[in-house]
């Protein structure tokens, strides 16, 4: 019953943050809400017994990819106008929403960790079993995923080069 409540809280946060991310007109605001949504999904992963997936979700999506997005968008706003915009970002009405949502998640996570039993559901997926699955039966899938990344890389290189050539 308890885990169900926790699950519903985290999912509400995820849904709420995602809807807000979609409706924001400012890209930075949207991205911050998207990060909160990813954090909420990580909490759900943790709750259903996949701590490794939860960690990956934070490290890769929220940590690496989203922060990269935020960096790139901030880099594009250089100059006087950008400074003004950045100052605007520090206004409370911008960060209050994501902060409250993250706080809910943090409280939930702290509570989860402090309960001695750990994740309530039986049997959690360890990093070792993930690795064994990936490099056992699904090894070809891993290789194909690398091909997928290659095609994304080559494609974006080609499409991006037209702007590099013009010296933007």
């Amino acid at each position: 019953m308890l885990e169900l409540t926790l699950f519903y809280i985290a999912s509400t946060v995820a849904l709420f943050a995602t809807v807000l991310a979609m409706t924001r007109t400012n890209a930075i605001h949207a991205l911050i809400y998207l990060i909160v949504s990813l954090l909420a999904i990580a909490v759900i992963f943790f709750l259903i017994g996949a701590p490794f997936a939860a960690a990956l979700e934070i490290v890769i999506y929220a940590g690496a990819i989203m922060v990269l997005f935020v960096f790139v968008i901030m880099m594009l706003n250089l100059g006087e106008k950008g400074d003004a915009r950045e100052r605007q970002l520090l206004q409370p009405h911008v960060w209050l929403g994501p902060a409250i949502l993250s706080l809910v998640l943090l409280v939930e996570l702290l509570y989860l960790i402090s309960t001695v039993e750990g994740p309530a559901s039986s049997g959690s997926v360890s990093p070792k079993s993930v690795g064994l699955a990936l490099f056992g039966p699904y090894v070809i899938a891993v290789e194909l995923a690398s091909m997928l990344l290659l095609s994304g890389l080559v494609g974006s290189y080609h499409l991006g080069r037209r702007y590099l050539d013009r010296g933007l």
Binding site: I140, L144, A145, M147, G155
Partner: peptide, 23 residues
């Protein structure tokens, strides 16, 4: 399902760039 999805994405992602290839 995993290989179905990987195949479909590999096909699709390369195609986006091929369609937009002329500069």
């Amino acid at each position: 399902m995993a290989s179905l999805l990987l195949g479909m994405e590999l096909l699709g992602i390369s195609l986006y760039a091929m369609i937009a290839f002329p500069e």
